[in-house]
Computed example of a mutant assay.
Amino acid sequence: MKLKEMAYAGLFAAITAVMAQISIPLPFTPVPITFQVLAVCMAGAVLGSKLGALSMLVYDLLGAIGIPVFAGFKGGFSAIVGPSGGYIIAFPVAAFFAGYILERAKGYNKLMSFISMFVGLVLIYLVGMVQLAVVAKMSLLKAFYAGVVPFVPLDIVKVVIAALVVEPLRKSIMSFSNV
């Protein structure tokens, strides 16, 4: 792996940590509204499947060892195994698939960017919802209403925003990489 690639992976892990701190707790669920999803989806779409997944794995590992990178400046293994940990666990998988879909598409465009990142978002919801149900001892339906439904409208907006900026950002990074 090239030094530039490691730097980009670290950069997106750091961006995700910053976006996690834009956090709004909700009184009816242990899952806060954050902007992590935006960073996760963009990591895969901009860096590609492997490097995007690596950046989110770095983020997850930093948090797991206790560095306060998760929402509300939380860190530690307890955050990973807690009610909202499934969302965090899904970040590398979501970034991988967002990047993978775009790598298989014929060129970057806004629609394919949106679709790839939407798939990543759905994966985050699925894993997060299942862990929320298990840890909080609730049915999958209740976990769906507590851990998915309230987040869909804003997350769709985040994915639309990401789809609009992914292509120019990727081109900018690629042109910088060739210097």
Rank of each mutant, 00 (worst) to 15 (best):
Ala90Gly: 10
Ser116Gly: 15
Ser113Arg: 13
Lys137Phe: 14
Pro68Thr: 06
Ser55Ala: 13
Leu140Thr: 07
Phe96Trp: 15
Pro27Glu: 10
Pro68Arg: 08
Ala43Arg: 01
Leu140Val: 09
Lys2Arg: 13
Leu132Met: 10
Val159Glu: 01
Phe114Asp: 00
Val93Met: 13
Ala98Gly: 15
Gly44Arg: 00
Val152Asn: 10
Glu103Met: 11
Ser84Asn: 08
Gly63His: 07
Met117Ala: 00
Leu54Cys: 05
Asp155Met: 07
Tyr87Thr: 03
Leu11Trp: 00
Phe144Gln: 06
Met6Ser: 11
Ala43Lys: 00
Met56Pro: 02
Leu61Lys: 09
Ser116Trp: 07
Phe73Val: 05
Ala94Glu: 03
Val119Asp: 04
Ile24Tyr: 11
Pro68Ala: 11
Ile88Asp: 04
Gly63Glu: 03
Phe97Val: 12
Val134Gln: 10
Ser55Leu: 06
Tyr125Leu: 10
Val37Gln: 11
Met42Glu: 00
Val179His: 06
Lys74Cys: 04
Phe70Trp: 04
Met129Lys: 12
Ile80Thr: 05
Gly120Trp: 11
Ile115Asn: 08
Asn178Ser: 11
Val135Gly: 06
Phe70Asn: 02
Ile161Ser: 05
Val157Cys: 05
Leu121Pro: 02
Lys2Tyr: 00
Val46Leu: 04
Val119His: 02
Ile89Tyr: 12
Leu61Arg: 07
Thr34Met: 06
Val40Lys: 13
Val127Cys: 09
Ala71Leu: 05
Leu140Ile: 09
Ser23Gln: 03
Leu54Gln: 01
Gly76Asp: 08
Ala53Met: 15
Val93Asn: 06
Glu167His: 14
Val119Cys: 13
Ala133Pro: 05
Ile65Tyr: 10
Ile101Lys: 10
Met6Asn: 11
Met42Gln: 02
Pro92Arg: 15
Lys74Gly: 07
Tyr100Asp: 12
Leu47Cys: 04
Val37Ala: 13
Ile24Met: 13
Glu5Trp: 00
Phe114Tyr: 14
Gly147Lys: 09
Ile22Lys: 06
Val119Phe: 08
Glu103Ser: 15
Ala53Thr: 13
Ile156Ala: 10
Gly44Lys: 01
Ala95Asn: 02
Ser116Asp: 14
Val130Gln: 03
Val58Leu: 12
Met174Lys: 14
Met19Asn: 11
Met19Ala: 14
Phe176Cys: 01
Asn109His: 07
Leu102Gly: 11
Tyr145Thr: 11
Asn109Pro: 07
Asp155Tyr: 12
Ile88Cys: 08
Phe151Leu: 12
Leu141Asn: 04
Ile89Asn: 10
Leu38His: 09
Ser84Arg: 04
Asn109Val: 06
Ser113Trp: 06
Met112Ile: 02
Gly86Thr: 04
Leu51Pro: 00
Tyr108Trp: 12
Leu38Phe: 15
Gly72Pro: 07
Val130Thr: 09
Leu57Pro: 09
Lys171Pro: 00
Phe114Trp: 09
Ile88Thr: 07
Ala95Gln: 02
Tyr8Trp: 02
Ser113Glu: 13
Pro32Val: 04
Gln36Lys: 12
Lys4Asn: 01
Gly63Ile: 05
Leu154Arg: 03
Phe97Met: 14
Pro27Phe: 10
Lys50Ala: 03
